[in-house]
Simulated scan of single mutants.
Amino acid sequence: MSIATSPADAPVAGSVLPRIEQREQDGRSWTVASGRWTTLAMSSRSAWQALAKDLAGAPPTEDRAWDLRPIEQLDHIGAQLLWDHWRHDWPATLEMLPQHKAVLDQVARFTVGTPEEPPPTLAERLRHFSHTGPRALEVVRDFVGLIGQLALDVCTLGRAPHRAPWRDFSGHLYQFGATALHITALVGLLIGVVLAYLISQQLRQYGAEAFVVNILGLSLIRELGPVLAAVLIAGRSGSAITAQIGVMRVTEELDAMRVMGIPHGFRLVMPRVMALAIAMPLISLWTSMAALVGGMLAADAALDISPAYFLSALPRAVPIANLWLALAKSAVFGILIALIGCYFGMKVKPNTESLGRGTTSSVVTSITAVILVDALFAVLFKGVGFRA
Rank of each mutant, 00 (worst) to 15 (best):
residue 1 M to L: 08
residue 5 T to M: 08
residue 15 S to R: 07
residue 17 L to Q: 09
residue 20 I to N: 01
residue 21 E to L: 09
residue 24 E to D: 14
residue 24 E to S: 14
residue 25 Q to V: 06
residue 32 V to N: 03
residue 34 S to V: 00
residue 48 W to F: 15
residue 54 D to P: 01
residue 56 A to W: 10
residue 68 L to W: 15
residue 69 R to F: 03
residue 85 H to N: 03
residue 86 W to V: 02
residue 87 R to M: 02
residue 89 D to K: 15
residue 93 T to L: 01
residue 98 P to C: 07
residue 98 P to F: 08
residue 101 K to P: 00
residue 105 D to H: 13
residue 107 V to T: 11
residue 108 A to H: 05
residue 124 E to P: 02
residue 124 E to V: 07
residue 130 S to G: 13
residue 148 G to V: 02
residue 148 G to T: 04
residue 150 L to F: 09
residue 154 V to A: 04
residue 155 C to A: 12
residue 163 R to N: 09
residue 175 Q to G: 03
residue 179 T to H: 07
residue 180 A to N: 11
residue 182 H to L: 14
residue 183 I to L: 15
residue 190 L to E: 06
residue 192 G to R: 08
residue 202 Q to Y: 00
residue 204 R to S: 14
residue 206 Y to H: 07
residue 210 A to K: 05
residue 211 F to C: 00
residue 218 L to W: 06
residue 228 L to I: 06
residue 233 I to M: 14
residue 234 A to L: 04
residue 237 S to H: 09
residue 237 S to N: 10
residue 238 G to C: 07
residue 246 G to I: 11
residue 248 M to Q: 14
residue 249 R to I: 01
residue 255 D to V: 15
residue 260 M to V: 05
residue 261 G to Q: 01
residue 271 P to V: 08
residue 274 M to Q: 11
residue 276 L to H: 13
residue 276 L to G: 12
residue 281 P to H: 03
residue 290 A to F: 00
residue 294 G to T: 09
residue 297 L to D: 01
residue 299 A to C: 15
residue 309 Y to K: 10
residue 317 A to R: 04
residue 323 L to W: 09
residue 325 L to T: 12
residue 338 A to T: 02
residue 342 C to E: 07
residue 345 G to L: 05
residue 347 K to S: 10
residue 349 K to N: 13
residue 352 T to F: 00
residue 356 G to V: 10
residue 356 G to Q: 13
residue 358 G to H: 08
residue 358 G to F: 06
residue 368 T to L: 15
residue 370 V to E: 11
residue 373 V to G: 08
residue 374 D to W: 05
residue 376 L to S: 11
residue 386 F to G: 10
residue 388 A to P: 08
